[in-house]
Design a binder for these strands. Structure first.
Lengths: 119, 119
DNA sequence: TTGACATATTCCTATATAGGAATATATAGT
DNA sequence: ACTATATATTCCTATATAGGAATATGTCAA
């Protein structure tokens, strides 16, 4: 079997750096395709193709306005990624290091309390 | 050009659901390959191959112990993903909705203050 | 050293890109 | 109707999988 389609889910869609760049630009607001072409320095067909993938996974929405097509971010599609990766935050976050220290202390106190029955 | 290699970066590596599952299992602690084989119901060679990809992007580390190889999580490799996706949190988080309300109010108050030169 | 166990690698194939080039479609203006 | 502008689609090709099957490598134990 080959790799899953880029349109299979958001994880596959955003594996491509250009598509992340497109989302980053759209984060600042709605944009026509040509804005993206200019800002990212890509060929127009490639941008349209990337936008199609992003649309298929629900990461962007489109709106017609005259001869332009205005794309806008739909961050909801990225929530599963956020939810998944958030579980690993403790691997690098000082905040969680601190939390771990506190939890360790609680556990130690609890163990000490065992013999003395509370107090 | 084809798609970037799965080993190109963490984004590409974790696009494959099996590899995310492997990381999820390793999050609970170090494991030999056969544990993963049993827990995920995959063929052993496939697991070894997925582990290789995860190793190449730095998401796991290995340690030899007798005839077993113990794999463990290295969450640091996932930080870039977390950092990237975090910027989109406001799209779905109520917390940020609230923050936006506050910011709007501040902006409004500032605008009102314009004519009255401070207060 | 022979055998059992644990893991990695190699070979195979169907499939899906990403980018470039060319072209199609749609809309506005004259 | 014609033209310019904006965007999408199609065709092409090199490349990289993911999984299955077979096999290689490494290590312990008798």
């Amino acid at each position: 079997m080959a790799r899953a389609a880029t349109t299979a889910d958001a994880f596959n869609a955003i594996a491509e750096p250009r598509r992340r760049q497109i989302l980053d630009v759209l984060a600042s607001g709605e944009r026509p395709v040509n804005d993206l072409v200019r800002m990212l320095g890509l060929a127009q067909p490639q941008v349209s193709k990337h936008l199609r993938v992003l649309r298929e996974v629900g990461a962007v929405d489109v709106r017609d306005e005259g001869r332009q097509r205005l794309y806008r971010l739909n961050g909801h599609a990225l929530k599963p990624i956020h939810d998944w990766v958030k579980a690993y935050e403790r691997s690098w976050s000082e905040r969680f290091d601190q939390l771990d220290v506190v939890l360790q202390e609680l556990k130690r106190e609890e163990a000490e309390g065992d013999g003395r029955n509370d107090q």
